[in-house]
Amino acid sequence: MSEAAVRHRVRVWCASVRGTDWYYRLKQRPSLQVVFVLLAIILTAAVFSPIAAPQDPAATCLYEKNQWMSTEHWFGTDYLGRDLFSRVLCGLQTSMVVAVTTIAITFVAGAAVGSYAGYNGGWAGTCIARIIDVFLAFPSIILALALVTLLGSGVLNMILVLSVVQWASFARLMRGQVLAEKNAEYVLSAQAAGLPNWWILVKHLLPNCIMPVVVLATMDLGHTILTISTLSFLGLGLPPSIPEWGFMIHAGLGDMRTAPLNVIVPGLAITFVTLLFNLAGEGIRDITDPHMDVEGSL
């Protein structure tokens, strides 16, 4: 493809984006734009954190342990004299890798299972609905605890555990969406036209059902980060050698009186990142759902 053709395509694509409703609503909400920019910064920081960290997050120095903020150590040092800022930055990468992978898996699995159960109904659909109920009957951390006992710690195991815990809420939402939409006229007309079921599901139903699931995914990213940090705070899930916020707080508990930064800084990091995902989730809901009025947004 020549350069001119590429340019033309980009221009057409930009024009089509500018014409959409959600772009118009996004333009009206400067606070939401700020949230998206901050999220972009966070994601970039997560990707480049090992390079961007000013100091080696694993370098210990017992002479400098439990220090307050200084120009050398922006957020102070932990009980082994490791630079807290670098450790928080690397903890961001850990959390984001686990959370994004988990949500990607649960999104695909939940949407597939949920839309199948919703569209086909029958005994298979009922069975799936029952299984979803069972998974939702476990309070999420409890199920995660049981699975961590089974699998042991590790990044891959953590992703697996969180996916098993969370797919059900996606499946339930997707099933509900498909159930609500499947008797709509456009679906009936597609069926009357003799289109295959998978085509109707993917091409007609999915675009109309997917946005609430995307909103749930964005908010669940924040929720997953909370769950990861809770599990590693309890000493389960991730091995202690990987910098992780929950475990950093756990490790800082002993010296909490003399070095409160050890528990404050990672906690603030968790709160900040989760807050951004929550705000982004609500923002996406506001700009994509035409029924929502402006009142609901922050």
């Binding site: 940090s229 528990v263 709160t271 989760t274 807050l275």
Partner: peptide, 18 residues
């Protein structure tokens, strides 16, 4: 509310103790 919802429960507990 949106700020509190983003704070992990265990951290709230630790902060309260602190």
């Amino acid at each position: 509310t949106i700020f509190f919802a983003s704070m992990p429960g265990f951290w709230v507990a630790v902060m309260l103790i602190l």
